[in-house]
């Protein structure tokens, strides 16, 4: 059970593809547009197109598709749970019942809603994963900081905010590493994490949580001390080695995103003219 291998959030895969070379601001804005689009898709046809587009981006960024998807594994139970919730709890007038059991009944409307929401979360996760896999922590934060700059005029400390994000992202990874170590140590002592049903598995995990958080916090504290020792004082007076620069790749990406958005909107409108 190699947990860190299943965590793709916050991991960066270095590369030289055009997706890697995009200005982080372009990538962040593109991701924001795609996520917004997701909120408006209520039928399957646009999702088909979305899927093709996502696969194309993954291929263009040189990330193995299996790797991009394995980050989803820890999320799987949540996705399935959400699907069931919608299936049984969503109801609409005139919905046709497909299965019913005890006090629960699943309607076709519930099925549709479950599918849509699951797809939405799936794509949301995939978009964010692609963003972090192709953008290093520093350029991600540089991009965010530059986009959030207007906020500083109204007194919001965007630099500190962004540095906090760096630490948080690193913390997720540290947490995963610690969990991995502790699980291995417990398994060596004979605790079987990989056997039993869901409840037994969860109960086996219980005693590891305290040491997990203690270790993770200790390590995060060390990270902050190390940053301090390297003259970090909260972002004031900081300069950047890589200055952000939008170029031809960014313009082409902009065109691609606009075309894609137009196409999706067109499909949404022609499938569901009432929106």
């Amino acid at each position: 059970m190699e947990l860190t291998k299943n965590i793709t959030l916050g991991v960066y895969l270095p590369g030289e593809t055009s997706i890697h070379r995009l200005d982080p601001r372009t990538k962040i804005i593109a991701a924001a547009i795609l996520i917004t689009l997701l909120l408006f898709i209520k039928s399957y046809q646009p999702y088909g197109l979305f899927m093709l587009f996502t696969i194309a981006v993954i291929i263009a960024s040189g990330i193995p598709i299996s790797y991009a998807l394995c980050g989803l594994k820890p999320m799987l139970p949540v996705l399935v749970l959400m699907w069931f919730f919608q299936l049984f709890l969503y109801s609409a007038p005139e919905a046709e019942v497909i299965v019913s059991w005890w006090i629960f009944s699943a309607t076709d409307a519930g099925l549709h809603m479950g599918n849509l929401i699951t797809l939405r979360v799936f794509f949301l996760f995939t978009i964010i994963t692609i963003l972090t896999l192709t953008t290093s922590i520093v350029s991600l934060t540089d991009g965010l900081e530059s986009l959030l700059k207007p906020l500083r005029m109204i007194g919001i400390p965007s630099q500190e905010l962004v540095m906090t994000m760096i630490i948080a992202l690193r913390f997720v990874l540290i947490l995963a590493e610690e969990l991995d170590k502790i699980i291995k140590a417990q398994m060596a002592r004979g605790v079987a994490f990989d056997r039993g049903n869901f409840i037994q598995k969860t109960r086996n995990l219980f005693p590891v949580f305290l040491p997990l958080f203690i270790n993770a916090f200790k390590r995060a504290e060390e990270l902050i001390v190390a940053m301090e020792a390297r003259s970090y004082t909260g972002g004031k007076g900081r300069t950047k080695m890589k200055t952000l620069h939008m170029g031809r790749v960014d313009r082409s990406a902009g065109v691609v995103i606009m075309l894609f958005t137009g196409l999706i909107v067109y499909i949404i409108l022609s499938v569901n003219p009432q929106i």
Binding site: V11, P14, S136, I137, V138, S139, I174, L223, M227, M241
Partner: peptide, 12 residues
């Protein structure tokens, strides 16, 4: 592992 900040060597 507790002192590296970025995910690229030169940026760190």
């Amino acid at each position: 592992d507790n002192q590296l900040v970025s995910s690229i060597v030169e940026e760190d």
